[in-house]
């Protein structure tokens, strides 16, 4: 088996190339957004959000039938409603943001399950949960490209605002920044990415692309910008590696990508020179670094 067979030949199939394309596109934006979620301790929010999409999808199905655009909009609306609702709840009442999210997503999920039980045809929920990346249509790919481009553009143009709002929202506000809008904008982007990833990869892989590259990069970097870059790179490389793994070993493609991301994460947790496991054991006094 030569290099061509190993790396190039798999993508001569259209469905493989499309699968890789959507994994790369969503990996890039997921890697960027994940950093903010991890640093703001909203890592589990993606999970909550993804469940809350169900009533939107079910309702869209009931009204418009199995139209891709309708399902997309339905999921988007449900997700935005959850994100906005919990942001409002946490600002206007005593309830903290994580609890607000938790409560809202459960209610939304219940509404979704209730709606699905009323549907004449039974929707295949496992498809939503695990997706099928190799079944990516060219419409899916277009959506992924648009979402990824918007996310990357927001990070490029709004970098300073995102950094300040993530690191020190009070200071940002004192400088006249509109932190609330940055926050809501990032939540909206998260919803957008989840919805785009839903049809191609399913919830679990989408969450993997959000969290694993970001926490891996978090273990290596002391600069916010570098963490963003590294996280995106990890997501891109793992997507390629995962799809090749799935092709050659005959494994489910989404799961292979997450496994590759998981390998990077565990390696980082072990070997990170400053914040890793091994360092902690070898040099217990390493908290005070020499200047």
């Amino acid at each position: 088996m030569n290099l061509h067979d190993l790396f190039i030949a798999p993508f001569s199939y259209d469905f493989m190339a499309r699968g890789l394309g959507s994994a790369l596109l969503l990996g890039l934006s997921g890697g960027l957004l994940g950093c903010v979620l991890v640093l703001r301790r909203l890592a589990l929010m993606g999970d909550a959000l993804s469940h809350s999409l169900l009533p939107g999808i079910a309702l869209a199905w009931m009204i418009f039938g199995p139209s891709l655009a309708a399902l997309f909009m339905g999921a988007l609306l449900a997700g935005l409603l959850t994100a906005l609702g919990s942001a409002l709840l946490s600002r206007l009442t005593r309830v903290k943001e994580d609890a607000a999210f938790g409560s809202l997503f459960i209610v939304f999920f219940a509404a979704g399950v209730a709606l699905v039980s009323k549907l004449p045809t039974r929707m295949n929920l496992t498809h939503v949960l695990f997706g099928n990346i190799l079944g990516t249509s060219s419409t899916d790919l277009g959506i992924a490209a648009a979402v990824s481009a918007v996310t990357a553009l927001v990070f490029l143009l709004g970098f300073r605002g995102i950094l300040l709002q993530t690191f020190d929202p009070l200071f940002y506000r004192a400088c006249g920044g509109r932190g609330g809008w940055v926050h809501i904008g990032l939540l909206a982007l998260t919803v957008l990415n989840l919805v785009a990833a839903l049809q191609t990869m399913g919830i679990v892989l989408a969450l993997g692309l959000f969290l694993l590259p970001a926490v891996s990069a978090y273990l290596w970097c002391d600069h916010f910008a570098r963490m963003l870059l590294l996280s995106a790179c990890i997501a891109l490389v793992s997507s390629v590696a995962g799809i090749l793994l799935s092709y050659h070993a005959g494994l489910a493609s989404g799961a292979s990508i997450v496994l590759c991301l998981g390998a990077v994460f565990f390696a980082s947790a072990l070997f990170s020179p400053r914040y890793g496991f091994i360092n902690r054991f070898l040099r217990p006094q390493s908290r005070t670094l020499p200047a």
Partner: peptide, 17 residues
């Protein structure tokens, strides 16, 4: 937070940019 001393101080210049 993954940020250095210098990067925090640089934030002071952000509002004027």
């Amino acid at each position: 937070f993954p940020i250095t001393v210098r990067a925090v101080v640089e934030q002071g210049r952000y509002p004027s940019l």
